[in-house]
Structures are given as structure tokens and as C-alpha cells.
Design a protein around this nucleic acid. Structure first.
Length: 554
RNA sequence: GCGCCUGUAGCUCAGUCGGAUAGAGCACUCGCCUUCUAAGCGAGUUGUCGCAGGUUCGAUUCCUGCCAGGCGCACCA
């Protein structure tokens, strides 16, 4: 079943082709047809500026071209009227009954309504958060925990095979420093220079000792190693637990160490060597990333023989691709944007297409306000806000929703006080309230014996402007999902849901759904109840893509 | 110095491939609950789309330069 926008776009293309074939027009046929829903209701249900676009190549006035297309479009059964406006816009108004058919589609497809095939057959590896297991997840990770998870759901809804992956940076100096810090805290020694300072280190130390008292009997390096390993386990588990309660799930927790122990690093190096981008200089082994837009070449093996973190990155990328991912998406914080060129270069050096096989999304940093003041974050002073803190303050739904509703390139300010409010300032409640409100109406419908099965639905009875507006908004949903997936922008789902909820609230205010008092139930009541059910379905589907709850009662 | 991101209403921010009179919430003023959830609806007010050029039927959107803010430029992890 195709939507009206798809249908109209196809018909416009067909009409253009027909005009060209008849010799009425001589122009290039655009690959995609611009079809938008006008902001102004007077401009019809759909509008196209196609005549303006092809006017130049056709060498004809836009309005003349629009007239040619108008004839073909008017002949369609779904179309009520076609108007030509302004410089050559084509405004299309649909037959009301035809527009109402979307309710049938939604109710038949249920939770599958909105799912598409634009990414069918594409395997996508989505890597996000990837924190060091040396501390709690903080605000920066939290944005990705919400957005990354939502993007995974959106990509899957577009048909992609998605692998969500968390890369555990469990190797290197930072881990040793972490172990030494925990050990120092446990044994009453001062925290080492550049060590980890937060209060959580002391808590970790206590927990490690409580679980493994024998660690205190060890000495020297062995004790350091044991503290590192035991604290690593505890910290990783706690990250996993909080992500679980946050509703963010990973398919793969990938350990950096495992890259080394499995031989993946050597394998990656061989692959890069075979592609001819590896060279030796000053005793070190380098990857010539400057061949592909990086501003300097990068060291893989230091002159001392140690492998760099960058070497792990190359191996990890190659490993992801060999595990079957077509596209590797990296979600990084703005403080890592300097990595974009070198990551792209890794793909190119491995013989891949950096424009297709690898994508890097940069998320700007998140600030937090409380009591009208910015909370300054400092690891050293221990004033970091963790994912757990945020959830405790505002709850999972409000936190997730707010983090997702902004494009990631927008630096955002989370206002904790606003997130606690239950007003329009806090849009998650606005959307959830619409869903709960419909649930209440449908409960009442059942009680009042208003038939609202699909069999009782007559689309021709939905003739009110508010009904029309709501139907139009519902029909948009599949396009929104498809564009959110294509553009990797899950915030579009949230913005759409706010729009849809607003349209529903307006409908609800003007159109009585259920019979009043002793009134008998009419087919119009049934039609409206069906419209409500369809709206509830779409709100629920959208919230599900965001990982936010769709409550039946509030 | 080089690179990336941002600059839209008093505040927080949307704005799809360049489209018609640039939007939403908050704030402010005023209406709407003896019947489906008022966590709602309606009306009013709010703009040098950072600045200056360019591209064209048309620019908040694309290009160039500048201004302002944030971030980054390791044989660190």
C-alpha cells in the first residue's frame, strides 16, 4: 500500500513524461519530486513546486507547465481538486474519503505502520558511548545513550540490520592509572599523580575489597593488577546496569583487549600493509592517513614497539567490516571531532569508500542547569553529573525524550527544573498525555458500546477540518521515519510526535468522539473512535522508536 | 595559524531537496471544565534569520569573506 505522497509523486513524474512524449514539453525529468504539506491550509493537502523547477530546462513559463500537469492530476480518483497558485505552485486537495483510508492502513498494519524498506539489506554497525570502564557514565555519554539507542531503533524501522556496539577501552595507561587509584584508596595511600579523584573511587575500593578481601594480602605489582581487574569488572557491570534501566541495549560489548588477544590487530596491520599505506620512519610504524585528507600521518607502532590506541582503532574498523557491516557509524562527542579525518582515512586506507562505509556523527556537549545556574562539571572536584543522577532527578522518559528531541549538532542545555515539570515546557508529557487521553476515550468507547472495530469504519464520515488535519498528520508518519533514518536524525520523530499530539488535542477539543448522555451511537462516533485508535497507534509507534513509554493512564 | 560545530522572537529551540505570509513551547494579556483526562483548547503580542557580498524566478537554507561563542589540532588514552 502506498501513501498519497508516493502516489502523487509517481503521478507527477508520469505526467511529466507523458507531456514530453506528446511533445508538449521538452525538459529534464527530476529524479525525485518535491511534494510538501503546505503550512497554509488554503494551499491544499499537498503542494509541489515541480513546475518552477523544470521551467528553466523546459524554457517555458512555470504556470504553463503547471497547467499541463493539472489535467493529468485532476483525473485521479483520489484527487478532489488542483489549483495553480503564485508563480506556479501546484496545490492538490485530496478527496476526503480517500484521505480517511490512512486509518484503515494504520489499524491493519498496527505496530508495523511507519516501517519502511529504504535501508533493507543494509547492515549497519552503530557504535556509541564507548566509555572507559574507569568511572561512571556522565552527561556526555548520556546524550549518546539516548540518541544512539533511538537511532538504532529508527534505522531498524527503515529495514536496516543494526548491530549496536559498545567499545570498551579496557587497555592502556588509563586502566593502569585507574587500578592504581583504586588500590591507593583501598590501602590509604595518596591517589597517584594524574590519577582518578572522584568519590566513586573510594566506593569502588570498598566494594572491591568487600568482594575480594584476599586482594589486600597481595603485594606490589600483583596487587595493582588485581585491583585494576576487579575494579574494571565492578565498574563495567555498573555501567551495564544503568544503561539497562535507561532502556539502552547493546548487541555487542566489544573489548579492546580482545582485539589484541584475538590477533585482530596484526590482521588489521597486514590488511593495511597489503593496501600499501603503511610505512616505517624514525623507528615507528605509520599509517599514511594524509593520503586521504588527514592533516598528519598517524603512528600505529611506537618506536618502542608499543601499539598505539590508533592501531586498535584501525583493527576495530576492519574487524567490524569483516563481521559483515556495510556501514560503520561512530557517534562521538564534540571533543573528539578531530578524529573524523583520521577515521575516514582508516576506511580509505583499508580500501573502502569513506563516503559510504563509514559515518561519523559528532554530538555537541551537554550542559546542565539547576536552580537557574549552570552546574559546573569537574572530574577533579568530583562534581560530575552521572547518567544515574539524571535518571534519579527526572526519570527515564523525561531524560531520554529531552536528549533526543534536539539535533545532535545543537549544543544543549538541560534544565533539570524544567524536566521535573508537568507542563508544555516539558514536551514528553504533552505527547504522552495525548496517548493516555486517547486510551481513556477508547476505554469509554468500549463501555458505551460504541463500535470501533475496523469493520465499523466509514472514512467518508470524517469531514471536519480537524479530522482532515489529523488524517493528514497521520499520513506523514512513514515519511518522517524514512527521513529520520536516512538523515540519522531521530529528533525528527520527537518533533513530529509533538506536532501530531497538538493536532490531536485540537481535534479532541472540537470533535466530540463519543455520544453524549442518552444519544445513540452513530457511524460518525465509530469513525471518530477509529481515528482515535489510529492516532494512538502512531503515537505509540513513534514513542517506541524513541524508547519512551506510551502510558495508558496518566 | 589550521579544522569542526553554533549564531533564528525577551528565554529554550525547530525549520526536509532552495519555495508561497519564517514556526513551536515558555513568558505576557484575555477567554474556555454541571458530559470523552484542563498534564488540554482558543485568541492577542513578539523578528535586521550574526554582518556583507555572490549564485537565481526565488536564499534562514547553497557559495565566499568577516564578526561572535564553543570545541579540537600527541610516538596521550
Amino acid at each position: 500500500m502506498t501513501s498519497h505522497s508516493d502516489l502523487l509523486a509517481a503521478k507527477i513524474t508520469a505526467a511529466l513524461v507523458a507531456c514530453v512524449e506528446r511533445g508538449e514539453l521538452n525538459c529534464e525529468i527530476p529524479a525525485t519530486i518535491t511534494l510538501e504539506r503546505p503550512k497554509n491550509r488554503d494551499h491544499g493537502d499537498y503542494a509541489s513546486s515541480i513546475a518552477l523547477q523544470v521551467a528553466k530546462s523546459a524554457g517555458r513559463a512555470p504556470r504553463e507547465i503547471a497547467e499541463l500537469l493539472k489535467r493529468d492530476l485532476e483525473a485521479l480518483a483520489e484527487v478532489a481538486s488542483v489549483e495553480i497558485a503564485g508563480p506556479g505552485f501546484i496545490n492538490i486537495t485530496l478527496e476526503r474519503a480517500s484521505q480517511g483510508e490512512v486509518v484503515r492502513q494504520i489499524r491493519e498494519q498496527g505496530e508495523n505502520f511507519g516501517r519502511g524498506k529504504s535501508l533493507l539489506g543494509v547492515a549497519i554497525n552503530l557504535e556509541f558511548i564507548s566509555a572507559n570502564p574507569t568511572g561512571p557514565l556522565h552527561l556526555g555519554h548520556t546524550r549518546w545513550a539516548a540518541v544512539g539507542d533511538a537511532l538504532g531503533r529508527v534505522l531498524a524501522a527503515a529495514g536496516a540490520k543494526v548491530t549496536r556496539e559498545f567499545y570498551i577501552n579496557d587497555r592502556g595507561n588509563q586502566m593502569d592509572l585507574f587500578g592504581a587509584s583504586v588500590r591507593a584508596a583501598a590501602t590509604g595511600q595518596p591517589i597517584p599523580e594524574n590519577g582518578y579523584q572522584g568519590a566513586y573511587i573510594a566506593d569502588l575500593a570498598k566494594e572491591v575489597v568487600a568482594l575480594n578481601p584476599e586482594v589486600l594480602t597481595l603485594s606490589g605489582d600483583e596487587q595493582s593488577i588485581q585491583f585494576r581487574e576487579l575494579a574494571y569488572k565492578v565498574q563495567l557491570k555498573s555501567q551495564q546496569e544503568i544503561l539497562e534501566t535507561f532502556g539502552t541495549k547493546f548487541d555487542v560489548w566489544f573489548s579492546e583487549r580482545s582485539l589484541h588477544s584475538s590477533g585482530a590487530v596484526e590482521h588489521g596491520l597486514e590488511k593495511l600493509r597489503s593496501q600499501g599505506h603503511v610505512f616505517e620512519q624514525e623507528g615507528a610504524t605509520w599509517l599514511r592517513t594524509t593520503d586521504y585528507g588527514d592533516d598528519k600521518d598517524r603512528v600505529l607502532i611506537k618506536s618502542g614497539g608499543e601499539l598505539t590506541y590508533f592501531a586498535s582503532d584501525t583493527a576495530y574498523y576492519i574487524n567490524k567490516r569483516e563481521r559483515g557491516s556495510d556501514i560503520c557509524i561512530y557517534m562521538l562527542g564534540a571533543d573528539h571531532h578531530g578524529y573524523v579525518h583520521r577515521l575516514k582515512a582508516i576506511a580509505a586506507c583499508a580500501g573502502d569508500d569513506p563516503a559510504y562505509n563509514i559515518e561519523i556523527l559528532i554530538g555537541q556537549l551537554v550542559k546542565i542547569m539547576e536552580g537557574g545556574e549552570e552546574v559546573k562539571l569537574s572530574k577533579r572536584a568530583g562534581t560530575i553529573i552521572t547518567l544515574e543522577d539524571l535518571v534519579e532527578k527526572v526519570g527515564v522518559d523525561a531524560a531520554r525524550y529531552t536528549l533526543i528531541r534536539y539535533p545532535v549538532e545543537t549544543p544543549m542545555v538541560l534544565d533539570v527544573d524544567v524536566l521535573k515539570k508537568r507542563t508544555n515546557e516539558n514536551p514528553v508529557y504533552y505527547v504522552q498525555y495525548a496517548h493516555a487521553r486517547i486510551a481513556a476515550v477508547l476505554r469509554n468507547a468500549a463501555e458505551l458500546k460504541v463500535a470501533h472495530a475496523l469493520a465499523d469504519f466509514d472514512p467518508a464520515l470524517l469531514v471536519h477540518d480537524r479530522e482532515n488535519e489529523l488524517l493528514g498528520a497521520l499520513a506523514e508518519y512513514p515519511r518522517i521515519v524514512a527521513s529520520a533514518a536516512e538523515m540519522r536524525e531521530p529528533h525528527r520523530i520527537a518533533r513530529y510526535l509533538e506536532e501530531l499530539a497538538g493536532v490531536y488535542h485540537g481535534f479532541y477539543a472540537d470533535c466530540r468522539v463519543l455520544p453524549l448522555g442518552d444519544e445513540p451511537s452513530t457511524p460518525t462516533h465509530s469513525a471518530r473512535a477509529n481515528l482515535c485508535a489510529a492516532t494512538k497507534q502512531v503515537l505509540g509507534n513513534g514513542l517506541q522508536l524513541l524508547g519512551v513509554g506510551a502510558p495508558e493512564r496518566m
